[in-house]
Design a protein around this nucleic acid. Structure first.
Length: 832
DNA sequence: TGATCCCGCCAACGT
DNA sequence: ACGTTGGCGGGATCA
């Protein structure tokens, strides 16, 4: 079975030969076409395959149009062959023909985007490799990326299950959420900024700081994000290595989902992804390698039509970049939560075995490159569990699995069930491509609806849970109603839902900040804390615009001048607030953190515990919830709650329906999206240091905690509002956010949200961070980016200060920008 | 040339 | 031991 080398011959020949048929157009163009038009070349192959397997056909059908271009390509081939023997010999190899992108197209052509659940489509790697005439190694590259999107999941050794795009939207949502949590937006900004300043200033300090901050940010690594509800985790089988490609792929996607212009340059992506080790400067080789991998990933994503290559032209020159062309991710969707009825809300605390399992996975991931692997004990558990799953899974269609499953299993299962609704959604999405915008709206709605309705109608999925019902699934439900807007929620707190759908857990092993909760069934989440880095001064430099062909970008354009206004703030980097809640276990492992911490300056990091700041807490449920979810931590003791502050920010979340949000937002440009808001956590940085606050904070903390406790249960039933209430209260007096003023309008509209925002001022901080305001909304002064920025990042010296971050907006791009105001450079994006 | 990225060695794992 | 996965980076191609 060793990989055959390509004997390319036979198969390839076939493939190529067949093409003849096509009209030969001009031979010339072959080149570019490739990426763009995938299918053609493959078509032949498809034919063959289709004959063999029915599944394929469906796929083919879908792809109705093959472009001419493709044909051209083929034509080219034909020509070559025909032209001369010599030629044709050569022709075979053309590098392009062997490209991963093309291979991926071929691969994808074999399976339907939306396979029927009934059929189990599974993939045998050997077969595929053989049929496509490639080494198995290449197939792994493809599959790994697909796996990161949950388009496939591994069943066993040579087998993978094909899910197609059914889970895609959920996966993307989950990724987006995680990306927001990780503050990728900020990280990106940081990097860009840095570049600016780049070499010029060599302040060691500065650089270091930067690095540090970055590092901190970066670290936020999370491990592999498991499906959002849908399916079981593919990861299962894999052992530990989930490392790179898979995770890298997810991170890469997150960058797109989080960044406003949805354009990500390889350089930036590589830097962010490298994160862990930091040491940026050092490795060039590392950087280079990272880029190489990104190309691999990008090729697959391009084949999936999720991204396309473009070039960003800056002052410096043009850099390769990719633009997201995939579906938009709806911010909210409750996804699972709603669906589930779930079962339980497991006390967050309890760690069930399951949870461990999850944890383990999470743990090992990133960070230290070293080997932190999971604890052996965990590993074993995991494995056993995984095995069970596999078995279960192996019987794809059949619902049977339940039996086997343990809690976890349950969680897994539901997913399938859940899929149903999902499917519908997906379909919509597919259509959406055509009329994206319109569709978007619809989708969001539909999605919501779906979620609500669908969820699990199918009961069976989780026996256990259901059994447990004691809890009230209520959580989910209630939320469901409102919440649609915040999809995010689930993850965090609510574990319950398992409804399969629900969630996945994310962790961030990385540094730290994560907290994990285990709920048995669900997920853990981590909250990344915010590491936010502040932004430095915006000074002059900054501002960039990006323009895409499409012109998407214009967004940011602020005048540089404005930025100037900001002037000098020396850099304020923001502190990073890293929060971490680790599980104990994790805690141990995390060495890295320590390193980073070097910034003693701010002990913050440590101190900050964090909550998932970014997280969205489901308003409903949690409220401050951030913590709530994490209450566990408390147990762990890891997280310190000290920072009360954050609470406020969180609060901001609102249960607004998505539609509402959009409506509101758009016009106003405000970022209300719950998610975003939530995301923007505010942290008080200095907390630790400043003990002063602490008292207050502590109290607040307690409150939170209590709330949680109470909330959770209550949460189920209780609507989000409660949360809000808390917010205000909790929030201390001080903060006033300028923004608030601005916000008003919005607030009204979005009443709930608004309020929170105001609150957010953050108890402690002087500057409250306002949540991202929109510029438009913002009053003049505020508007100035710089200003805003400052607010956010700045810590007014004291301990009290709060930094906020903005999170990304989910939906709202503008918002984020406004919020951060990071300077962007002008960029021009051009397609290839 | 710089941007891409194919190719396949070889280590980490699994069985 | 051997097969499967997949990290990694040299160096070939492409533009």
């Amino acid at each position: 079975k060793t990989p055959l080398k390509q004997a390319a011959t036979s198969h390839s020949v076939l493939t190529e030969i067949q093409p003849d048929c096509q009209p030969l157009t001009t031979p010339p163009k072959p080149k570019e076409i490739l990426p763009a038009d995938p299918w053609t070349p493959t078509s032949n192959l498809k034919m063959l395959i289709s004959a063999a397997s029915p599944e394929i056909r469906s796929r083919e059908q879908r792809r109705e149009l093959s472009n001419n271009t493709r044909e051209v390509l083929q034509a080219k081939h034909c020509l070559q062959e025909h032209l001369s023997g010599d030629e044709y010999e050569k022709s075979q190899p053309s590098r392009k023909e062997k490209s991963l992108g093309l291979l991926c197209h071929k691969f994808l052509a074999r399976y339907p985007d939306y396979p029927s659940t009934a059929e189990n489509n599974y993939i045998c790697l050997d077969e595929v490799a053989e049929e496509l005439n490639v080494e198995r190694r290449r197939i792994y590259d493809i599959v790994n990326v697909l796996e990161s999107l949950h388009m496939v999941s591994r069943l066993a050794k040579n087998r993978y299950a094909w899910h197609g795009r059914h889970n895609l939207s959920k996966t993307l949502q989950a990724l987006k959420k995680v990306g927001e949590e990780n503050k990728y937006t900020q990280q990106i900004q940081m990097i860009k900024k840095r570049e600016y300043e780049h070499e010029f200033d060599f302040d060691g300090d500065r650089n270091e700081e930067m690095a540090r901050s970055c590092g901190s940010n970066e670290h936020s690594e999370m491990s592999f994000v498991e499906l959002p509800g849908m399916e079981f985790r593919a990861a299962s089988v894999n052992s530990r290595k989930d490392k790179s490609l898979r995770v890298m792929s997810q991170k890469f996607v997150m960058l797109f989902l989080v960044s406003t212009p949805q354009i990500v340059s390889l350089e930036v992506a590589a830097k962010i992804l490298i994160g862990e080790d930091q040491l940026e400067d050092l490795d060039k080789s590392k950087f280079k390698t990272k880029i190489r991998r990104l190309y691999d990933i990008a090729n697959v994503l391009s084949s999936l039509e999720l991204i396309k290559k473009v070039h960003v032209t800056e002052e410096r020159g043009r850099k390769p970049a990719f633009k997201w062309t995939g579906p938009e991710v709806l911010p909210n969707i409750q996804d699972t939560k709603l669906e589930t009825t779930s079962t339980t809300c497991p006390p967050p605390i309890s760690e069930s075995i399951t949870s461990k399992d999850q944890c383990s996975k999470n743990l090992f991931p990133s960070r230290g490159k070293q080997n932190f692997t999971r604890h052996p004990s965990l590993i074993k558990l995991v494995k056993s569990i995984e095995n069970d799953r596999r078995k279960i899974q192996s019987a794809p269609t059949s619902p049977v699995k339940i039996s086997a499953s343990t809690d976890q299993n349950l969680s897994a299962f539901p997913s399938k069930m859940a899929q149903v609704p999902a499917i519908a959604k997906h379909q919509l999405e597919g259509q959406s491509k055509k009329a994206k915008e319109e569709m978007k709206m619809k989708l969001s709605r539909s999605a919501l609806e779906c979620n609500l309705s669908s969820p699990e109608a199918v009961p069976k999925p989780e026996p256990p849970r259901t059994a447990a019902p004691s809890q009230q699934p209520a959580l989910a439900q209630p939320l469901g109603v409102c919440p649609p807007s915040h999809s995010s929620v689930p993850p965090v707190i609510l574990p319950h839902t398992h409804s399969g759908v629900s969630y996945a857990i994310y962790l961030h092993p990385s540094q730290a900040h994560t907290v994990t909760t285990y709920s048995p069934s669900f997920m853990l989440q981590t909250l990344p804390c915010a590491n936010i880095t502040g932004i430095k001064s915006i000074n002059s430099k900054v501002l960039n615009k990006i323009t895409t062909e499409e012109g998407d970008n214009q967004i940011a354009t602020d005048d540089p001048t404005k930025s100037l206004t900001a002037k000098d703030r020396p850099t304020r980097k923001s502190e990073t607030s890293s929060q971490r809640c680790l599980k104990r276990s994790q805690a141990l492992q995390e060495n890295n953190l320590i390193k980073r911490y070097r910034s003693d300056e701010e002990n913050l990091d440590t101190s900050l515990t964090f909550f998932p700041s970014g997280y969205l807490i489901p308003l409903t449920q949690c409220t401050h919830g951030n913590k709530a979810g994490f209450s566990d931590k408390e147990k762990a003791g890891i997280c310190s709650l000290q920072h009360t502050t954050y609470s406020s920010p969180i609060a901001s979340v609102i249960p607004v329906t998505a539609s509402e949000l959009k409506a509101v937002n758009t016009p106003l440009n405000i970022m209300l999206s719950p998610t975003s808001i939530a995301a923007a956590p505010v942290l008080s940085n200095s907390c630790l240091t400043s003990s002063s606050t602490s008292s207050a904070q502590s109290s607040s903390v307690l409150n939170f905690t209590l709330q949680h406790v109470g909330l959770i249960p209550a949460g189920v039933q209780v609507p989000a509002n409660p949360v809000l209430q808390h917010m205000p209260v909790s929030s201390q007096p001080e903060n006033v956010s300028h923004s608030s003023e601005n916000m008003n309008l919005q607030e009204e509209k979005v009443s709930k949200n608004t309020l929170q925002l105001l609150d957010r001022g953050g108890s402690s901080g002087n500057y409250s961070a306002v949540i991202p305001l929109q510029q438009p909304c913002v009053p003049k002064e505020l508007q100035e980016p710089p200003t805003v920025t400052e607010n956010f990042f700045r810590t007014p010296g004291g301990p009290n200060t709060v930094s906020s971050l903005s999170a990304n907006s989910d939906g709202t791009d503008r918002i984020s920008q406004g919020t951060l105001y990071i300077p962007q450079r002008k960029l021009e994006v051009s397609e290839d």
